[in-house]
């Protein structure tokens, strides 16, 4: 038996909505399992990323850990896909980009109405937060973009099938290109 292509997924600065939608392909997930093996992914809990055909990235790049993960995915995946608005544009987390980082941290940890004895977290074990949230393609080369918040299960399914088919040009039908 020839080995099946491997697909890995990661959630950076996202809400897991895109991953939930990946599961929303319903019983098509059974055909997917016939076509591919999942590598590292929040849905299977494999910890080490191996060499993969396709990497699906949910979320933008908000901290140093996101950055490391994204770079590792870029190294190990032949085809890297931005899945969802946070990956393609920064999305909701990028709303902080219009506010200076210092102000964001002060509002969240010092001045917010529910804060008691606040302190801005500074533990060396915590990833450090970046000056702003970056769409993935502003950090590494991204091969395909699938906008949507989340993208519909049909569009994720269409993209996966296309990528596994080895065809050249992805043209999503009108109904599958959405930014909301």
């Amino acid at each position: 038996m020839t080995e099946k292509p491997k697909v890995a997924t990661a959630s950076l600065a996202g809400c897991f909505g895109c991953h939930m939608t990946l599961l929303d392909i319903d019983d098509r997930i059974l055909s997917l399992i016939d076509l591919i093996d999942f590598d590292k992914s929040p849905i299977d809990d494999i910890k080490e990323l191996g060499d993969c055909t396709v990497g699906l990235i949910e979320g933008g790049v908000s901290n140093s850990e996101n950055l490391e993960t994204l770079r590792e995915f870029r190294r190990k995946c032949t085809i890297l896909v931005s899945m969802g608005d946070c990956a393609t544009s920064g999305g909701i987390p990028a709303m902080r980009n219009t506010v200076p980082l210092k102000e964001c941290l002060e509002e969240a940890y010092l001045n917010g109405p529910s804060v008691v004895d606040g302190v801005i977290p500074n533990d060396p074990d915590l990833p450090s937060i970046l000056d702003r949230v970056y769409p993935c393609h502003e950090v590494v080369k991204i091969d395909y973009h699938l906008p949507g918040c989340p993208p519909s299960a049909d569009s994720i399914w269409a993209v996966l099938n296309f990528l596994l088919s080895g065809e050249e040009n992805l043209e999503l039908p009108y109904e599958l290109i959405k930014y909301d």
């Binding site: 393609t88 544009s89 990028a94 219009t98 769409p135 906008p147 999503l172």
Partner: peptide, 20 residues
């Protein structure tokens, strides 16, 4: 948005400016 959909734009080629 509708023109962007019609033209098939998936992501802008330019960096986002995030102006205030």
């Amino acid at each position: 948005q509708a023109v962007a959909y019609r033209l098939g734009i998936l992501v802008p080629r330019y960096p986002n400016l995030f102006p205030q």
